Simulated scan of single mutants.
Amino acid sequence: MKKSIKNLFYFCLPLLIIYVGLEIFLHSLDYEPKTKNEYLEKNKNNLEILILGASQTERAINPEFLDFNSINLAASSQGIYPNFCLFKYFAPKLPKLKIVVLGMPFNAPNTPKEYTSPIVNHLNLAFYNVNTFGRATMPQDYLLFHSNQDYFSSRIQNYFRDGNYSNLNKFGYDTTRFYGAYQAANYNIGKINKSEIHIENEHNSKAIHNNARYLKKIIRSCKERNIKVVLYSSPTHFLYNEMRDTNLVYERDSLVKNLMEEYENLYFFNDEDNSGFEADLFYNANHLNPIGAKKASSNLKTFISKIIDNPKSF
């Protein structure tokens, strides 16, 4: 029996060493959360704006063009609950925080916390040390390769093909993400297949209730520190907007209206129907490319400047 256990140990030991080495290697690569956290740690005493949200907000706002000391922690599929977790962890560490921007596209209130990609939860834990899983952490939660073997295998392949080349600026924003469905169609609307546009139009009353609760916690916490909260919906292309469930739009707008009536530190900047964003500013139907992000960031900067200079005008 002892000999069998010993043989099993010697068999497993090389595999364990390989896996540990793999995790160390994966943690050494560049990721948006890693770069963002490095910038945040270096500048936390001067940051004035904290941006949270899902991929639409992540792609729309490049802090380079805000003219405020800002950090954008938005990430793909990151719903209101994980954003609440990030806010709860980081806001107390930012003594000069004036504005919290929270992505609020039309379907955000209906998006349950389970929608958040496991990769995002693992990266949040690995580089921010923030648990956004919605449960107690388990040992495997700290492992990157475990969360999505296909994705991290591709990262390894890219490393050996291109090296650890980073497309990220110092804020962790990807400045090269142009090639999506719209560039593939040469920005010709007639060549864009609407059936390939992905949109989440699912109603979820439980999610609305839970998300409203987390929103109120963020807003109340900010109010105690005299911090303003901006709910933000980034520009989306008219083809995408035509596909929105109007009931979900109404639910989002009603929730925001009720919250604004209750909290004087809350504002809503809805830029999603902005006709000034033509096809060549989009990556796909609901995400901007870096040029579109420059314009969207400028729009948000103007809005924020107004509420700082003259909050009673809203």
Rank of each mutant, 00 (worst) to 15 (best):
Y165P: 00
S195F: 01
F152D: 02
N241M: 11
L266W: 09
N186Q: 01
Y173M: 08
E242K: 13
Q157K: 15
R252A: 05
E200I: 13
E261V: 00
N204I: 07
S233Y: 03
Y240P: 05
D245W: 04
L168V: 05
C222D: 07
I208K: 11
E202D: 13
S147A: 15
Y179P: 00
N148Q: 05
N186V: 01
P235T: 07
D245S: 14
Q149M: 11
T175E: 12
K216L: 02
I192W: 13
H146V: 06
F133P: 01
E251H: 05
E242P: 02
Y142K: 12
K191M: 06
D150V: 05
I208C: 10
L143Q: 04
I219C: 09
V256Q: 03
D141F: 09
L239D: 13
S195P: 02
Y214P: 03
A181E: 15
I156W: 03
R135P: 05
S166A: 01
G190Q: 13
N226V: 00
D150C: 00
G134L: 09
G134T: 06
R177W: 09
Y182E: 00
Y263G: 02
Y173S: 06
E196Q: 11
N148M: 01
G190S: 15
L144I: 07
R252K: 15
D150F: 02
S221M: 02
H203D: 03
R220A: 12
Y250R: 04
A136Q: 06
N164H: 06
E202A: 12
Y263F: 14
T137R: 01
V229S: 08
H146I: 04
Y151L: 13
L215V: 08
L231F: 15
N201W: 12
K206D: 12
G172T: 03
G172Q: 02
S234P: 13
Q140W: 08
F160A: 08
N201T: 11
R155F: 07
H198I: 09
N211C: 10
N211W: 10
Q183I: 01
M243S: 07
D162K: 10
R177Q: 14
M138W: 04
A136C: 01
K170V: 03
Y142N: 08
E262R: 10
R252D: 03
K257S: 15
I219D: 08
N167H: 11
H146W: 13
D253E: 08
Y250L: 06
V229H: 09
Y232V: 03
Q157V: 15
L266Y: 07
Q149V: 13
N258D: 14
N247F: 04
G134F: 08
D141P: 07
F133Y: 14
A185Q: 10
S234V: 14
S254R: 14
A181P: 03
N210A: 06
I189H: 01
S153N: 13
A185W: 09
S221V: 00
Q157Y: 11
K223P: 01
I156L: 12
R155Y: 04
L239R: 04
K194V: 12
S154M: 08
